Amino acid sequence: MKYISTLLLILIMSACQFNQSQAHHTQANHTQAQQDIQTQTNSSMSPVFELITLGDTGGIEDGNLSSFLLRSVNDENFIGLDAGSLVNGINVALQNNAFDSLTTTPDSALNPNGNILHHHVKAYLLSHGHLDHVAGLLIASPDDSSKPIYALSSVNQTMSDTYFNWQAWANFTNRGIAPMLNKYDVIDLAPQETVEIKDTALTVTPFSLSHPLESTAFVIEHNNDMFVYFGDTGPDEVEKQGKLDTVWRYLAQQMQHKTLRGISIEVSFDNSRPDNLLFGHLTPKWLMQELTKFHGLVEDKAQLTNMKIIISHIKYSLKSGAEPRAVITQELESDNALGFNFILAKQGQVVSL
């Protein structure tokens, strides 16, 4: 009997030790799984794009007009997203050490701004032909390097008819009025058709936007990551064309298997601006209404929390009183019930996405 009791005790102790071992093993597996998930999350949110602001206003401050540079962090070649201010924007960005991450200096005979313009900016994407989006490119064109200009056909036609016509400016492109100087290869984009951007690791899919002159949203991709640059646009409810809705639905569908890293979109005026004087632009109220529609279409709402929304094209004012940026900032914050991550663009600024 004593022998049986001892045997039972040994069996019970062994079972306890086994259960403790299994529990420890299960806990270790659970901890490792949590670490793996966290590692994957951290990895997935490592920066994919770098955005440099060359110009943040929609007028009237010349020298600081709508213009950005975008690149994949794995590639030192940029694309220009509009070019209202170009060389001046590059100079301000250099003063702010915006290009310090670049490791190559292709031409020792050029100043830093010359190397950026000639060798690192590989293409321009023009949203529309208004001067506050193209003036920098025109002024720089005599000393620019050869590269393509991508735009919707109507935008390229405006550039050819209005500027590169030997009256407003010499024809530095490969189409239009002779003599053609052939510096810029003009490439027509078709709405909602994806093309590779030469000499970069990026692709672009354009969408038409509502504006007095046809404008464009560019969905730029690198592998499974996206960034969207919006040219000037009015809200759908005012414009009655549903063009922003088309972009939102496309992005929501793509976000089922891709990551939207950021959006750059305009807010030209504060909420006091009447709808009949918007002229194809947004206010904080209208932007929030558009983003709310977008939010409702996206399945994974966490993507929208992580996504950065860069606000640009705020109109500079000569009037005394509250500064437009401060008013628009306050209006965006007070109406941000969905927790969007807003960043006001500032000339010379670098944003990792």
Rank of each mutant, 00 (worst) to 15 (best):
I10Q: 02
S72W: 05
S101P: 04
T305L: 01
D199I: 02
D132C: 09
G348I: 04
T31A: 14
F207A: 06
Q241F: 03
L9Y: 10
L353P: 06
D236C: 10
N306Y: 13
L304Y: 03
A345M: 10
I187P: 00
N113P: 07
K122C: 01
N306F: 11
P142F: 11
I139D: 14
Q253W: 03
F218N: 00
E290D: 10
Q32F: 14
L137Q: 10
S153E: 13
K183Q: 15
T246N: 13
K122G: 02
L125Q: 08
L213G: 05
V186R: 11
V195R: 06
A252D: 11
P274G: 08
L277V: 01
A98N: 08
H24K: 12
D100V: 02
Q256V: 02
L11C: 06
E333G: 02
N19K: 09
K183R: 09
N223W: 01
W169F: 12
R249G: 08
H222A: 04
E214L: 14
Q330Y: 10
N77T: 04
H120R: 12
D185S: 07
M255T: 05
T53L: 11
V247R: 03
M13T: 12
H222E: 07
Q22E: 13
L51S: 09
L70F: 07
D100R: 13
T162C: 04
H222C: 01
G59M: 14
I10K: 05
E239Y: 01
G348R: 13
A98H: 05
L189N: 07
D161E: 14
M45E: 03
Q35S: 13
Y3L: 14
P112F: 07
R175I: 06
Q32A: 15
A109T: 11
V351T: 15
Q349M: 14
P179A: 04
R325V: 00
Q347R: 13
G129H: 12
Y124V: 03
N96E: 10
N223Q: 14
R175W: 06
K147N: 10
L181K: 10
K293E: 07
G231C: 00
V195E: 12
Y163E: 13
L65I: 00
N306A: 15
